[in-house]
């Protein structure tokens, strides 16, 4: 059963198309991820789905409620954890949750019970009376996630849930997300630009770039679609080797990138000698060669023609300074 469906959802800002005719659906109970570089349109999509922005064109439904015509119904059924922290730092953790529950019309007895339950889920029970400005970055994030769950939402939106957190905390957050997906049966829609995050958490992933969805599938299928094994090599005359290898039928796909060739093949270890033979006959010297299982990075490279890290290098400087200005999350 579909819990989110969008139909040609589009958002334009003046001349910039942030989200371009995006159509997809999310199944009930799954963890669905939007994977894409910064500025791909992930946050804009979430803002439209959570009724904070009006789409320029197209429509979307959440459990049969239209995001424009039936806003209040949509709002009741979703929980949102925004990319920027959205807590009142002058209040205690418990108060933040309590006020949230009141806005969603949860009765007094239920409120208490639920606050304890969600805090337990993220291991913050003993921090209930501490003012949020004294929380660490990871604790704030956990509190926000628990707040998103307060009103038993059918869908929980997580916008870059582990942005700016250290490795250990990220791992912990992932486990909380998995746990609530399992224990509460909450459908989760998340966005991320971390490959490992999408790989670890998501049942299905949509790769989004420049406002367009390039592909949607399970992680398994995505990886298989580019071959069972991936061979990466560097060599002396990369262009001629690429031209030569393109004639070989057993290579599913070839991508040249960063003076490296990436080949998708079946049974990679048996293909290495073949490649070396071919290159020797062409008088091309191979400098390095390796075989490995495909990762989401390879999938992303295959569909966008570049790695997500390159984008990041460009944007990182900007984002970091923005976070510093906001006082950061750390």
């Amino acid at each position: 059963m579909n819990i989110i469906t969008t139909d040609n959802l589009t958002k334009k800002y003046n001349n910039l198309i942030a989200v371009d005719n995006v159509s997809f659906s999310v199944l009930k109970g799954e963890i669905f991820g939007f994977l894409g570089p910064n500025g791909a349109g992930k946050t804009t999509t979430i803002k439209m789905l959570t009724t904070l922005l009006n789409p320029t064109k197209g429509s979307a439904n959440i459990i049969d409620f239209d995001i424009i015509k039936n806003r209040d119904k949509v709002r009741k059924n979703i929980g949102v954890v925004f990319q920027e922290p959205a807590l009142d730092t002058e209040l205690t953790g418990g108060e933040n949750l309590d006020y949230h529950a009141r806005m969603y019309a949860i009765s007094r007895d239920k409120r208490k019970e639920r606050i304890n339950a969600v805090l337990k889920l993220v291991d913050l029970e003993d921090k209930i009376d501490i003012i949020v400005k004294n929380y660490s970055g990871g604790m704030k994030r956990r509190l926000e996630i628990s707040r998103g769950l307060m009103h038993y939402p059918n869908v929980l939106f997580l916008d870059e849930p582990t942005l700016g957190l250290d490795a250990q905390t990220r791992r912990a957050i992932w486990n909380y997300v998995k746990k609530m997906n399992k224990e509460e049966g909450t459908t989760i829609f998340l966005t991320t630009h971390y490959m490992d995050e999408a790989d670890y958490l998501c049942d299905r992933v949509g790769i989004i770039d420049r406002g367009k969805i390039l592909v949607i599938d399970t992680i398994e299928n995505l990886k298989n679609s580019i071959g069972n094994d991936v061979i990466t090599l560097t060599c002396s005359n990369i262009n001629s080797l690429e031209n030569r290898l393109e004639k070989e039928k057993w290579i599913f796909n070839i991508k040249k990138h960063d003076s490296k060739l990436t080949l998708g093949v079946e049974k990679g270890d048996e293909k290495i000698p073949l490649i070396i033979e071919i290159s020797q006959s062409e008088k091309i010297r191979i400098k390095s060669i390796s075989v490995r299982k495909p990762t989401l990075d390879d999938v992303f490279l295959h569909f966008t023609g570049r790695t997500i890290r390159e984008d990041e290098k460009k944007i990182n400087v900007e984002t970091q300074s923005r976070f510093r200005m906001r006082g950061g999350r750390r």
Binding site: T50, T51, L52, D72, K73, R75, K76, I78, V80, F82, E84, P85, A86, L87, D88, T89, H100, M103, Y104, A105, R147, R326
Partner: peptide, 14 residues
């Protein structure tokens, strides 16, 4: 608005 709390309020069914 700058510290994000406004979004939390705006997304509530009120």
């Amino acid at each position: 608005k700058q510290f994000g709390f406004l979004q939390e309020v705006l997304v509530a069914p009120i």
